[in-house]
Amino acid sequence: MARTRPIMPAWFHRLGSPKGFYSMTTPWLPWLAAASLVLLIGGAVWGLGFAPADAKQGNSFRIIYIHVPSAFLALAGYYVMAVAGAIGLIWRMKLSFVAMKAAAPLGAALTLISLVTGALWGKPTWGTYWVWDARITSMLVLFFLYLGVIALHYAYTNGEAAGKAAAVLALVGTANIPIIYKSVDWWYTLHQPATIKLTEAPSMHPSMFQPLLVMIAGFYCLYALVLILNIRAEILHRERGSHWVVELARSRRS
């Protein structure tokens, strides 16, 4: 607390204090919730009912509208987690460890969505639920990386050490992700089965692409919403002894 910090804008300090973050994000929640609801429902209806079916894959192609956004955010989420961990290690900001802890299960859930939808898409397209395709394999490795961070965090009983250890692991994972992806890619070209090819049109027709953009935006909003909700719940838990949280709990009750 007595640590002298480098000069930072005021919002940084507000974000850095649990109470500041909590009160700052309260008005954001309804907007984020509304935006993600509208975008996700709109995008899903558009993608399911109104986007044209793919010429080769038919209607199974409609899974792309959840598969790609979730895969997208699963990967981005790892970097969110690692950057939060790095900020925590460098600036000793407690809140960023909270953010890192909040990002881990969220990212793992999104990775799981992309794996499951990928398998369900694979069955009608390739005739099998699972192929050792480069991207699927990379996603699986990403899932393991998330599980490792989560498991390590839970294994520590001391909360502060847990945050730091998980941050170190997340950073090591970040340094390795490009290497893992490149090597899996290379491994795949080595073993590529001739019969199976990932059919991705080089350029999607706009009528197919627009709902995808809507869904990606919707997933982004939902990601931000859940991340903030997780952080707020964790703040309540960690600050449960402090005055403002007790106050808050009572005022909500009345």
């Binding site: 490792g148 294994a155 520590y156």
Partner: peptide, 22 residues
Amino acid sequence: LTVAISRGGLLLSLIVMPLYMP
């Protein structure tokens, strides 16, 4: 990372194996 955790062996495999893959 796992040295101070009791029965950290399995956890060690979980966190290290993805990094072994390349």
